[in-house]
Design a protein around this nucleic acid. Structure first.
Lengths: 344, 344
DNA sequence: CTGAAAGCGCTAACAC
DNA sequence: GTGTTAGCGCTTTCAG
């Protein structure tokens, strides 16, 4: 049944069609792409024959010739994260229609892997890159180089501030404000904040929103209530340490900055201090569609992930297909949505 | 800053190196690949210069020439599913080391999308394909054609029975047996079974395990207690209908066959009959690492997803690199793991 | 040990 | 309208 081994497929080529029809390859090529120079009859003959033998243009050859691949690269920290998989779905929903294919790579929150993957993608002639930075990433010079060489890049979610290009983010400070204020409204005064690596753009924005909410309600900001996890909670220890340091401060509520940390926190507190799990009220960023199954329950801030993906890919395709250098860049900020849940 | 538009990158080529060093491209090519014919000194000169100018071979050109791409395609129903993202991580963990890159595509449980994506990947010269069938897929003739043309294919998780190649699956009947027996051991007699499309291999195997457990404890099998969801729970209605039909039968326990259905069921029951949510004991297949946060809690059967990915990619690479047609095929069955949780 | 030349499948001047 | 030709960047005979 399987005749693999050294043998590879033998797919028909332009030449085969040309030979069979007594035409030149260029005519066939043009006919297949419906160019105006070719007569209707020839087109019909060629198309029909191509269909008959189930001809498919070799995209590799086409890429080599045209110096573009009609594929775009995506880098996220991990696809197992609901936020990112929703973004990817948004990207795909548009990319397909526009004739682009999508290649997904994971950085697993590692700078090294991120760089490796980006460079691999770039060498595979992707036409553009959509990237959310890893929590380890501080040096983006490798991206700047590729960008300077002509690779269109659009950032989303975790964006650098010293890089002039399109960016797509959620309204993080607003989301954080809402979440923190929700805790305040339910009567909490000591509100902790558990968050990602300090260097990330969205960490800063969410911290800002947290501070603003405290300020708006005349609650003094206490830095010791803020705990950063440099690896975004990928390492269990950083989370455990954070929780261990937080508990003695007797927080009444906690605002958590992302998916992985939210679930990680609940896990940690249930394992170490189950009696506290239901006492410390939680509000957190998460795009999990399972939040309402959680116990303890939590108030969640959801990012418009699908739409973020759509906006990002649209901007990227615009850049790719621009006939002249792009000089005006946008930072699109999309609103988050808060779902308030009772503290059960 | 960004000089894109019509301009594309100018990456150094073999020719550039050759010209700069006064060598021929063939010598440079051989030197870079460390061939024995080339003298050590020439190699060194070439390597050093290549490093200096940060030369990267153009994989597109290489693919065109060698008729292979060192990339393998993966098709899963959705990456947002923990099981699949873990499988993908397992695949990547090996693929990278062996010099292969991985292209992920989602079928979203649609046969049409599955076929489209597979054919797209095939036309992009993937060297092999790893696939878990969509719940809609019944006709695999399109895969047989590609396979016959020489595309190595390894199935995992959801496998066809009339296709001779390597397959990697979990011990589904055992997992189902364990889950069902757990419910029996906690005193349940009326045990429902909520599962995926009837045509899928793992649906059949899990149903089998469920039946065996009932039989082993002299509980008669009642077909009306088994509900299939042809779209694997992608459509909310099919799940709601199933639950609605099940409840009048007063199940005391329910064995659920996959991730999406498990979470979907809990959602549905909480929304429609919250008082029942904690009465009907749940045991289900899931690879979510959040199960222990769920309320109601459930006993879970976990598949060795990461390992399944590793085994599958290893078998695939074996096929790809085989110097002669492969004639002996394996079906590897990996054990599941049950985590018993009290019904709270 | 190194070079010249052909060719992978396709597109695009440039002829006619 | 259609054909001829060159060439994208690489690997690989085949000569030397």
């Amino acid at each position: 049944m399987y005749f693999g081994g050294e043998m590879r497929f033998e797919t028909p080529t332009l030449k085969d069609i040309a030979k069979a029809l007594g035409l030149s390859t260029s005519t066939v090529s043009r006919a297949l792409r419906d160019r105006y120079e070719i007569s209707e009859e020839t087109k019909k003959v060629v198309m029909d024959y191509a269909n008959k033998i189930n001809y498919r243009a070799n995209p590799i050859a086409r890429s080599l010739k045209e110096r573009r691949s009609y594929s775009i690269g995506i880098i996220v920290s991990e696809i197992a994260n609901n936020f990112f998989s929703q973004v990817i779905n948004g990207i795909e929903s548009i990319a397909y229609d526009k004739g682009y294919h999508v290649i997904i790579s994971q950085s697993h929150e590692s700078f090294k892997l991120e760089k490796l993957n980006v460079e691999h993608l770039a060498s595979r002639s992707i036409d553009g890159l959509l990237i959310s930075l890893s929590s380890e990433t501080k040096d983006i010079s490798y991206l700047k180089e590729l960008y300077a060489k002509g690779l269109p890049v659009v950032f989303f979610d975790r964006v650098p501030d010293d890089f002039e290009t399109h960016k797509v983010i959620a309204n993080n400070s607003q989301g954080a404000f809402d979440a923190t204020e929700h805790l305040i409204h339910s009567g909490k005064k000591v509100i902790a904040h558990l968050t990602n690596a300090e260097s990330l753009s969205n960490t800063k924005e969410r911290l800002e929103g947290y501070k603003q909410a405290l300020a708006a309600h005349a609650i003094p900001f206490r830095p010791e209530l803020v705990k950063f996890c440099p690896h975004g909670g990928m390492h269990a220890e950083e989370l455990e340490t954070a929780v261990k340091e937080l508990l003695p401060l007797k927080p009444e509520g906690i605002f958590i900055a992302n998916d992985r940390l939210t679930t990680g926190y609940i896990n940690a507190i249930k394992n170490t201090n189950p009696e506290l799990a239901h006492q410390i009220e939680i509000a957190g960023f998460t795009n999990s569609n399972l939040v309402n199954l959680f116990s303890p329950s939590l108030t969640s801030v959801k990012q418009p992930a699908f739409e973020m993906g759509q906006v990002a890919i649209s901007l990227l395709i615009e850049m790719i297909e621009a006939r002249r250098p792009v000089t005006e860049f946008q930072t699109r900020v999309l609103d988050t949505e808060i779902v308030r849940r009772e503290n059960l």
